[in-house]
């Protein structure tokens, strides 16, 4: 299955067109879609994730790689039967009201999907009610809240407060440029991750506890 190695290489180099091409080639060779995803696309994304955590690569490279991963996913996803992907848990995630930034949040989504979580993306500028509604509807184990601006950080506190009634069922993770562990503790979040790769570790930890 040399083609899977080629997919990994192209993905890590951020070459979206090549990943797309090779994924199609792998399908043509009769490799199962789940194998392509787990041993090709996600395996490569995990390597990027580790490098990211070790300061070997930075945000631009991760984004470029993630874009390549999506190019491959778009080819195989339609072929997946429902439930074919393993389900490690569900995460509802969004950027708080007043904040339109989503690149960091999208990185977390990619990493979490890469690690086998089901992710419900509420997008940007998400009011508290929308978080609550999504928790009611999707019954997630995890809720992720993102804020990029110092001016929207306080909205995070309101969001955590708004979810008070569900705290026995969900764990809340927070992150974003101005957020710190201290701030996370102050607003009563269950956990804080400084970057997308650590968010996956944090999610596993929170679910285990």
């Amino acid at each position: 299955m040399a083609v899977l190695e080629e997919i990994k290489e192209a993905l890590m180099a951020g070459n979206a067109n090549k990943v797309k091409e090779l994924t199609q080639k792998a399908l043509d060779e009769g490799i199962a879609p789940t194998t392509i995803i787990n041993d090709g696309l996600i395996a490569a994304m995990n390597i990027i994730g580790v490098k990211f955590k070790n300061n070997e690569v930075y945000v631009p490279e991760v984004l470029v790689a993630a874009r390549a991963m999506h190019a491959g996913m778009d080819v195989v996803k339609p072929l997946l039967a429902g439930g074919a992907m393993e389900d490690k848990g569900t995460l509802v995630i969004g950027t708080v009201k007043g904040d339109l930034h989503d690149i960091g949040k999208n990185l977390v989504i990619m990493m979490m999907e890469g690690a086998g979580f089901k992710v419900i993306d509420l997008g940007i500028d998400v009011p508290v009610e929308k978080f609550v509604q999504a928790v009611e509807e999707h019954k997630p184990q995890l809720v992720g809240i993102s804020a990029l601006l110092t001016s929207t950080m306080m909205q995070m506190k309101k969001t955590v407060e708004g979810l008070a009634a569900y705290r026995d069922k969900i764990k809340i993770m927070v992150g974003g440029a101005p957020v710190t562990q201290k701030f996370a503790d102050e607003i009563g979040a269950d956990g804080y991750a400084p970057d997308a790769a650590s968010a996956v570790d944090l999610a596993r930890q929170l679910l285990a506890s």
């Binding site: 951020g14 930075y58 790689a65």
Partner: peptide, 22 residues
């Protein structure tokens, strides 16, 4: 390279002993 990665084999590129970016 095109994705912005430093060539670790270049004589002027190094990884600091204490960790951190190349």
């Amino acid at each position: 390279n095109a994705s912005g990665r430093l060539d670790l084999n270049h004589p002027r590129v190094r990884r600091p002993a204490e960790g951190g970016p190349a």
